[in-house]
Design a protein around this nucleic acid. Sequence first.
DNA 1: GTTATTGCAAACAATTTGCACCCAC
DNA 2: GTGGGTGCAAATTGTTTGCAATAAC
Lengths: 139, 139
Amino acid sequence: MNTELKDYLKKKNLKATKNRITILKYINKRRDPFSAEDINKDLMDQNPINLSTIYRTLNIFLDNDILQKVAEIDGVLYYQKLQENHQHQLICTECKAVVPIENCPIAEWKDSLEKMTGYQIASHHLELRGLCPNCQRKK
Amino acid sequence: MNTELKDYLKKKNLKATKNRITILKYINKRRDPFSAEDINKDLMDQNPINLSTIYRTLNIFLDNDILQKVAEIDGVLYYQKLQENHQHQLICTECKAVVPIENCPIAEWKDSLEKMTGYQIASHHLELRGLCPNCQRKK
DNA sequence: GTTATTGCAAACAATTTGCACCCAC
DNA sequence: GTGGGTGCAAATTGTTTGCAATAAC
């Protein structure tokens, strides 16, 4: 049972505990960013896991390139499964729904920006905010 | 003394207190993003101001379009004087030097993104990171 | 059996808040 | 003089940590 996930963790030199497998499953299922609190609430009924354990597991998953931080909003960290391809977030300011954006115009802009500034640009972080179609209707 | 700053605050319907003028001066001088703690440390010698007061003042300045939040890093909020024209930050990962970037490719991209997603995009936040010319030489 | 992981409670750090005093108007 | 601004201490909130019990190997 869950042999695949167990092997995945072991390949990363992580002990395959019940909690880690539960959290890993959760991460794999969710397409949008989530917080530690989200995990805690969503697993409460089936597999309650202590908040400290969730935080510790998230940090271990970050270190092992399973997860990535995608935002920090009002003092809350949001995570997402590490994406192979570069992507950004479009967040609804009302309901907090998130749309991942795949194509990004920054790449093409990078060269000219490096020439202008002399900087050697290594990475960037882009967050867009607005109203989702649903919340527009409610206004 | 400081008549200009006093009038500026009064025009915004804010009482022109000593603390507010001191903080306003600080904000006007600084070109790069700063935290509440930065203000506290930098004013410690000349004009010590209580941290609560600094936080309260920053929030009032945010509400009155004097300030803007520019980042939230490791649980710390960073602010900057509200810029008339839209701008972003290019931050050196070594020495933390900041170059403000005036032109931004997102504006042109906005329309097509709104069509694609149905979102009504209100704002965006872009942060670029890399090595400044100085720190490149040192490597 | 050994060592890493877990749950619990306590610690932490940034920010906010309640309250009595004080200053700008 | 009055009401908003301030300092102080205490509360709050998300996250981290110390420690004893436990589970993975």
